[in-house]
Design a protein around this nucleic acid. Structure first.
Lengths: 335, 335
DNA sequence: CTGAAAGCGCTTACAG
DNA sequence: CTGAAAGCGCTTACAG
């Protein structure tokens, strides 16, 4: 049996009210009494039951971090890097982090008063509908994208501009026939990337057709290498591709290698996000950098502000991206 | 104000006891009454407050997953892959997963009755002392290693044998001068890897000295490339290295590349664990495979068993490893 | 089959 | 400065 506040009160010869007061540094306890209580707490190694406290204070001290269905997600360094940012600031607070993966778990987590607020990674309306999310009345911050009409604060990379920079960088190197490897269009992120690609191509006066655009059905690159290889094979004129994520770029390089192409000699590849681990690849990945850790930090900071009742000024926080030239890109071969 | 069990009872015209009974499918409620209650629950969109329930049932429905200090950890695919296994089985239960990173957070999480059990990733005695861990009386399963005298069930790769296989594989390819890149000796894992290395070398009749052994002070490979490069440079006779993790192997390849060495032509490198993402590297990594997802699943399964009061048979579960030859290894050059 | 009551471990007006 | 009491939202003997 673990010791509770009553035990402490009894041993210290005071009421539980007094113990509670010193526990939360509230005034109204004499210095001598307080010291005595503190000693007893120490001696008995008493720790308050956070659940019980939460019940009366009507807050749990927990924050949910919700990642979309699909376990692959954890292995995606994009998420783990942002998570690192979240972890960094949560460690300076008294909040605990609850994670959930499947959509049934998520719902239960969000609707059972188990958390005070939630950070949602690119939620999908099919799984977490806007209406439902609003109905539970929980403070929410989303990372990445959600529906256009979402009322929740959002923090995300400027992906549209990022892709534009990537296309421009390839163009500067001399590429004319540029492709894009994109995620499923059910995600706003992919939509914006495609927009960025198209407008960059247009501005540069470059031609493109459907054969320049590969849209994956799923995010799981580990299983998509084959499709990418077919795409690359189908239209050999492409000399450079931009990808909507580093993870995809990794798949592209893998696919190219499988086909006997050498990156960057035969194909230049640009990623997006600049996930730390990929700097270790050979060739190291040219990409469009964004401060992923910063995104995580910022998202949690906003949630914390909401939790403290602060008014938030900026509903949408967009992190700027910046092209980094490494060694997966070069001048195209003369055809 | 969210609706509570009293509201439901009032509207349904019954006592809270009856509502509670249908909530948890307990007998003792007439079919008609039960149906009526269920309808009210539905209509009012009532969800039980898990915190309140936990208070009386004396369990929280939460499981802690504790990873060692150092945010880099999240980006280590070794952890995220195991985590994937944990997530997979937790999603089939009603438990939620609480994660914590810093040691102060961990202690708070474990001692405030916030969780029913915990999975500890290679805990360090300096942060989570055995004595303290025992004193909190929480069901615990450790992944990786802890102290020799730890009473907690443990699941881990057979790392000693894994390294032996790696050394043997290099030997088969013709390598004689084999090095090892290891983690800090404060970790049992590193100790076992070193043992495996030494006994393999001994069995093969190969010579080695301190110059064959590089021990990192920290696990953060992203910052250790320099040290590895110095090590490789210091004793150029080494033609192949085994590493105590794929993550380290990645650092070795990076370091070698920086020095102008080509892997595997100038240096063969073997990783350990076979983390999914590294199959995408060029060259793809030769490594010693272990079922990381399985380790995660198994660890949680054991914890769940303990939580259900089952007696556990095997205190230590060791997953076998198996060498996989990919393209970061080859026959050494003639010197 | 059903409900009144006590209790899980806390906190917080309220009264003194 | 201090304590008795009520209450947070549930569950569970106990009695009928």
């Amino acid at each position: 049996m673990t010791v509770n506040i009553k035990d402490v009160a009894r041993i210290a010869g005071v009421s539980t009210a007094s113990v509670s007061r010193v526990l939360s540094d509230k005034p109204g306890v004499g210095a001598a009494t307080a010291d005595r209580i503190r000693k007893v707490i120490e001696d008995m190694d008493y720790r308050p039951n956070l659940g019980a406290r939460g019940l009366v204070k009507r807050k749990t001290g927990n924050i949910a971090v919700v990642v979309p269905r699909g376990s692959f997600i954890l292995n995606n360094p994009f998420f783990s890097t942002i998570l690192e940012g979240i972890a960094k600031v949560i460690d300076q607070t008294d909040y605990n982090m609850l994670m959930s993966f499947t959509s049934s778990q998520q719902k239960r987590l969000l609707e059972t008063q188990s958390v005070d607020g939630a950070i949602l990674f690119s939620p999908r309306n099919e799984e977490l509908s806007l209406e439902w999310l609003k109905s539970i009345g929980l403070p929410i911050v989303v990372i990445g994208s959600y529906l256009e009409e979402s009322p929740f604060p959002c923090v995300r990379p400027d992906d549209e501009d990022g892709i534009k920079q990537a296309v421009n960088a390839l163009y500067q190197l001399g590429h004319q026939n540029i492709g894009i490897i994109n995620g499923p269009m059910s995600s706003m992120h992919s939509v914006r990337c495609l927009n960025g690609y198209k407008s960059a191509m247009l501005e540069l006066g470059l031609n493109y057709s459907d054969k320049n655009i590969y849209e994956m059905e799923e995010f799981d690159v580990l299983k998509a290498t084959k499709g990418i290889a077919e795409f690359l094979n189908d239209y050999r004129k492409i000399t450079g591709v931009v990808c909507s994520s580093d993870f995809l770029a990794m798949g592209v390089i893998k696919a190219a290698t499988t086909m006997g192409l050498t990156v960057p000699r035969d194909l230049s590849v640009v990623g997006a996000d600049d996930v730390p681990i990929l700097d270790f690849m050979t060739p190291s990945l040219s990409t469009v950098h964004v401060d992923l850790v910063g995104i995580g930090k910022r998202a949690l900071a906003i949630l914390l502000d909401i939790l403290q009742g602060k008014q938030i000024r900026k509903k949408d926080v967009v992190f700027k991206m910046e092209y980094i030239n490494r060694s997966s890109t070069t001048t195209p071969k003369k055809q």
